[in-house]
């Protein structure tokens, strides 16, 4: 579902939320494996994923704000050129 969102939505913000959905799906899989293998390692991995995801969201949103200052838009099509 998250992948569908990344591919279909054209607002950068919504693409980012879809990325979060995909990360959460991966987290759920880790926790489930950890539960059924009677092993805590998976949960430690989820802890790291959550930490890195938080850092990544902070950086991504800062980039988005910087882009918005340049282009006055949050649509992905408006960011199609590399030149600022």
């Amino acid at each position: 579902m998250g992948l569908l969102g990344v591919l279909m939505r054209r607002s950068v913000l919504l693409i980012y939320m879809s990325l979060e959905l995909m990360l959460n799906a991966a987290n759920l899989a880790w926790v489930a494996f950890s539960h059924f293998n009677r092993n805590l390692d998976g949960q430690v991995m989820v802890f790291f994923i959550v930490t890195v995801a938080a850092a990544e969201v902070a950086v991504g949103l800062a980039l988005m704000v910087a882009l918005f200052r340049q282009r006055q838009s949050t649509q992905a099509e408006d960011f199609a050129t590399m030149k600022l």
Binding site: V50, A54, V57, F68
Partner: peptide, 27 residues
């Protein structure tokens, strides 16, 4: 996974979403 549930609520629902809302309001 009780600790992770708490982390999920605090970090995601608390921090990440607030960050998202800040940026949405900013734009």
């Amino acid at each position: 996974a009780f600790f992770l549930a708490a982390v999920q609520v605090i970090v995601y629902a608390g921090a990440v979403i607030v960050l998202f809302l800040f940026v949405i309001m900013l734009m």
